[in-house]
Structures are given as structure tokens and as C-alpha cells.
Computed example of a mutant assay.
Amino acid sequence: MTELKKKPLFNPEGNLDVRLRRMIGGNTTNLNDFNNMKYAWVSDWYRQAMNNFWIPEEINLSQDVKDYPRLLSA
């Protein structure tokens, strides 16, 4: 059986070329560059996935704060 070799978390000698990226057995940098993707459909999928969630810092909740005390208690 072949023994797995440990790879560093950050690999400055890794391949930056998108065409050379591999899920298994590649020599990656272990940095994710979502602006330069190997397949065009991945870029569209990634952008759609990013639009499917929000974080509190991006949403103005000031009106919700004002409305909260006026909610009916159950």
C-alpha cells in the first residue's frame, strides 16, 4: 500500500496555473482563488451560491430593532 505524503498547509512552490490544478495528487498552493477558475460553470455556480446567504453586517436591521418590542407575545 502506498503511504500518503503530508503536504504543507501553504505551499509556495505549488502550481498557480489553473490548468494544472488537481483534486488528488496535484501540487497546489492550497490557496483558493475564486476569481480564476478552471471551469466556467464553477464561476457561475460560486456566484449563485454566494448570493444564497447573507451575513448580519450586510443587512440593515435598524427597523427590525424598532419593531421587535411591538411584537405580540405568545
Rank of each mutant, 00 (worst) to 15 (best):
Ile55Cys: 03
Glu3Leu: 13
Ile55Thr: 15
Leu31Gln: 07
Phe10Ser: 13
Asn36Ile: 08
Gly14Ser: 05
Ser43Leu: 14
Pro69Ile: 01
Gly14Trp: 05
Thr2Val: 14
Trp54Ile: 13
Glu13Gln: 04
Met50Val: 00
Tyr46Cys: 01
Asn15Phe: 09
Arg21Ile: 02
Leu9Trp: 11
Asp17Leu: 10
Trp41Asp: 05
Arg22Glu: 05
Gly25Tyr: 02
Ile59Met: 09
Met50Trp: 03
Ser43Thr: 15
Gly26Met: 04
Pro69Val: 03
Asn60Cys: 09
Arg22Pro: 04
Glu3His: 09
Asn15Lys: 14
Ser43Cys: 09
Lys7Gln: 13
Glu13Asn: 14
Met1Gln: 01
Lys66His: 02
Ser62Val: 02
Met1Leu: 14
Phe53Leu: 05
Ser62Cys: 01
Ile24Ala: 09
Leu9Asp: 14
Lys5Ile: 12
Ile59Glu: 04
Val65Glu: 04
Pro8Ile: 05
Gly14Pro: 06
Val42Glu: 04
Asp17Lys: 09
Met23Glu: 07
Phe10Gly: 06
Lys5Asp: 06
Asn35His: 09
Thr2Asn: 09
Leu31His: 09
Gly26Glu: 03
Leu72Ala: 07
Val42Ala: 12
Asp67Gln: 15
Leu61Met: 13
Tyr68Arg: 12
Ala74Glu: 04
Lys66Val: 14
Leu20Ser: 10
Lys38Arg: 10
Lys7Leu: 09
Pro8Ala: 09
Pro12Ile: 11
Asp33Cys: 07
Asp17Asn: 15
Ile55Leu: 09
Asp33Met: 06
Asn51Pro: 05
Leu71Ile: 03
Asp67Arg: 14
Gln63Ile: 12
Leu61Val: 15
Gly14Thr: 04
Asn27Phe: 02
Asn27Leu: 00
Gly14Lys: 02
Pro56Asp: 06
Asp64Cys: 12
Ile24Phe: 11
Arg19Tyr: 01
Pro69Glu: 10
Pro8Cys: 03
Asp64Thr: 08
Val42Asp: 00
Lys5Leu: 10
Ser62Met: 01
Pro12Ala: 08
Gln63Lys: 07
Glu3Met: 10
Asn32Val: 13
Phe53Tyr: 12
Glu57Lys: 15
Asp44Gln: 11
Met1Lys: 11
Arg21Pro: 00
Ile59Pro: 04
Pro12Lys: 05
Asn11Leu: 04
Leu61Lys: 15
Met50Cys: 14
Trp54Asn: 11
Lys38Glu: 03
Ser62Arg: 08
Trp41Pro: 02
Val65Asp: 08
Ser73Val: 11
Met50His: 05
Glu58Met: 03
Ala49Glu: 14
Asn30Tyr: 07
Asp64Met: 08
Asn52Gly: 12
Asp64His: 14
Ala49His: 12
Glu57Trp: 01
Asn51Gln: 02
Arg47Pro: 02
Arg22Ile: 00
Trp45Ile: 08
Leu61Gln: 14
Gln48Pro: 02
Asn32Tyr: 13
Arg21His: 04
Lys66Met: 03
Arg19Asp: 11
Asn60Leu: 07
Phe34Asp: 01
Lys5Gln: 14
Leu72Ser: 11
Leu9Val: 15
Glu57Ser: 06
Tyr68Ser: 07
Ser62His: 06
Leu16Ser: 11
Pro56Gly: 02
Asp17Met: 12
Ala74Met: 05
Thr28Pro: 09
Arg47Trp: 07
